[in-house]
Design a protein around this nucleic acid. Sequence first.
DNA 1: CCAATATATTCGTATTATCGAATATACAGA
DNA 2: TCTGTATATTCGATAATACGAATATATTGG
Lengths: 117, 117
Amino acid sequence: MQDALRRFKADIFQALAHPTRIAIIEQLEHGERSAGDLMEKLGVEQANLSQHLAVLRAKQLVINRKAGNQVFYSVRDPIILKVLALMRRYFYTHLQEAMDLLGELDPKAAAESEVGS
Amino acid sequence: MQDALRRFKADIFQALAHPTRIAIIEQLEHGERSAGDLMEKLGVEQANLSQHLAVLRAKQLVINRKAGNQVFYSVRDPIILKVLALMRRYFYTHLQEAMDLLGELDPKAAAESEVGS
DNA sequence: CCAATATATTCGTATTATCGAATATACAGA
DNA sequence: TCTGTATATTCGATAATACGAATATATTGG
């Protein structure tokens, strides 16, 4: 029924509802990365990263491939990347409100530093 | 900086991460609705609906217009609707996995009942 | 002003998420 | 087999969210 679909969507959004997990997905945007790479790039605790990866795995937003010692992650479906791209557009459209919402910096600084994400 | 944007995105996803709030947005897909209309359509408690609307307002996903006694809500930016549309596509692409994830019904029943959302 | 209607807010409680510390597992090389 | 490296899981504390009940606010009509 309707409700199942909404729960499904909500679950996906929930999985995306954390800065670290968004950062993970964005890192995977251009190909797979090992957990170690991600750890280094994102500068988070090993356990913490692993927990976030577990969330993404549970909702099947990422897939993982074991290669010897390491585990390589990638996004399962590029649609998710499209979703993030839309969010980016959304962000720019409402930049001023976004800044107010975040309550920090000035728009110019935020816009500049945003090159690349 | 990067991180601010990610927090922003995460906040938006967080706001969408509840079946009732998704239902609200979907109801607004074709124009504004009063809080009362939404309450009836969704069959939720008045206070509960109001709380969910407050979340959507806080993240500025919806705007509201007071008309006399009532408050009419609408989605602020159609991009959000596009996001939901993408999720719909995502759902169908991974229907079987979605069903497993939700742990209920069979794909056919879910697919049928999904007409309209 | 009073009563009725529509909506919002507050409060207490239950559930869920997040984090770091500690521990476990899996694999690779000597 | 032993050691080291990479990753995952468990645990306990804290914080965030969700809900219904009760209450508050605003607006309309009499």
